[in-house]
Design a protein around this nucleic acid. Structure first.
Lengths: 194, 194
DNA sequence: TTCTTTAGTGGACATAAGTCCAATTGTAGT
DNA sequence: ACTACAATTGGACTTATGTCCACTAAAGAA
C-alpha cells in the first residue's frame, strides 16, 4: 500500500461517497458514482476505487454492493498533545486519539489540542481541556489563538494594539508575550471531559 | 404513521443495522439481516423493515440495495435549553438541536444542557456552554451536577458534609443552596463554541 | 367457530450491481 | 519511433438483491 498520489477526480469520488453517506446513510454504487462524475463505464470507476483503496483513503469489501466506506470520517478530528513548530503538517506521533463530531459541532476545526497549564483559566480554559483549532495564519484582536513561540505551541488571547501584536494570558500570574510569535490557528471551540 | 409498537425481534434488527453501519460503514442487505436473525425468507425481513419504517425508526430508499439508514443515530444528543421539573422525560419543545458525538466523546451522556448564568465560572463553566449530562438520581461529594431546585434546573457542585447535602457555586457572588433539591444528573463533559 | 391480524415461508422474477476482459487513447519518458 | 503507463470504454457475465405473490400458522377478537 504505497499511499500514492491521488488525482483530482479521485478526490471528487471520495467527496461524493462522503456526501452520500452523510445525506442518505449509505454509500453509492459504482454506477451511481459514474453517473455523478460523468464516467460512463463501471470498470473505470472500479479502477479509481482500487487506486483510492491502495492509497489508504477507502476501505472496500469486495464483491458486495455499496461495499465501501471512507477510511477516515470527514468529521474525525485528531487529538494532538502538542503543536509542532513545523506548523502545517501534523506529526502522527503526537496524535493521542480521535473524536468524531458532526459538521455543526465541528465548526471548521482541523484538530484538537490538549491544553497544558493554567494560563487561560480566566477564559474558562482549564488544563487538560481539548480546544478545537482551525488552522490559520492570522487572527483578529481579542480572539483566542494557538500560537508558536519558538518551538512551543501555546493557547493565548491575541491582542492587536497600534500595529503591535501580543499574546495575553487570562491569568494574572502570567505576563503578556510580546516577543516574536506565529499564529498557527484560531480556537473555535472547546471540549472537556470530567 | 402511527409510531406503533415494535417487537423484540424488530429491535434486534435495528441493532444489527446499527452495528453494521458502525463496523463496516454500510448497512446490511435484507438477506444478511435474515441470516443473522434466523429469518429464512427475505420477504419476512422486508416485512419487518416496513414496520420499522412506519414506526419512524428507519429510513428506507426503496428498491436499491442496502437502501436503509437509522432515523436517529445512537450517538445523537439533544440540546436542551432548560431541564424541566418533570425530570425524567425530555420535552421536545425545549430541544434546540442535536449534536452527534462518537461513543468515546459521548461519555455516557443522555443530553446536553445550555448553561445559564455565571455561577460556575470558577470551574471553567461559562454562560452559554453546553454541559454533557448523564441522568442519575444522586452523585458523590465534589461532583458537578444538574439539580432541580423547585422548578428550575441548575448546574452546581454537590457537597456532602456530615450527611448534609448542599449545592455550591464556583463564584463568590453566590451563596450555597441548602434548601431542598433533587439531583437530576451528573455533568460528564462540556462543549463550548466560540 | 369464523374472521382478522401478525408473522413467516418459499419460489419466481427482474434488475441492480460488482467483476472480468479486450481494446483504445493520450501522455510522458527513452 | 517505441515503450510504458494511467485512464477510459463497452460489453459480457454472474451474482446479489429487492420485490411480488400465493400460501401457511398462530393468536385474538367477535
Amino acid at each position: 500500500m504505497s499511499t500514492k498520489e491521488v488525482t483530482e477526480l479521485q478526490r471528487r469520488i471520495l467527496d461524493f461517497i462522503a456526501q452520500c453517506v452523510e445525506e442518505k446513510g449509505f454509500p453509492p454504487s459504482i454506477r451511481e458514482i459514474g453517473r455523478r462524475l460523468r464516467i460512463t463505464s463501471p470498470s473505470s470507476v472500479a479502477y479509481h476505487l482500487r487506486v483510492l483503496e491502495s492509497a489508504g483513503l477507502l476501505k472496500r469489501t469486495d464483491a458486495i454492493s455499496r461495499g465501501m466506506s471512507l477510511a477516515s470520517s470527514p468529521n474525525e478530528l485528531p487529538i494532538l498533545g502538542a503543536v509542532a513548530a513545523g506548523s502545517g503538517v501534523i506529526a502522527a506521533e503526537d496524535v493521542e486519539g480521535h473524536v468524531t463530531l458532526d459538521r455543526d459541532a465541528r465548526r471548521g476545526a482541523d484538530y484538537l489540542l490538549r491544553v497544558k497549564g493554567d494560563s487561560m483559566v480566566g477564559a474558562g480554559i482549564l488544563e487538560g481541556d481539548l480546544v478545537q483549532v482551525r488552522r490559520q495564519d492570522d487572527a483578529r484582536d481579542g480572539e483566542i489563538v494557538v500560537a508558536l513561540v519558538g518551538e512551543e505551541g501555546v493557547v493565548k488571547r491575541l491582542r492587536r494594539k497600534a500595529g503591535q501584536a501580543a499574546l495575553e494570558s487570562e491569568n494574572p500570574a502570567y505576563e503578556p508575550i510580546r516577543g516574536p510569535f506565529q499564529v498557527a490557528g484560531k480556537v473555535v471551540g472547546l471540549l472537556r471531559r470530567y
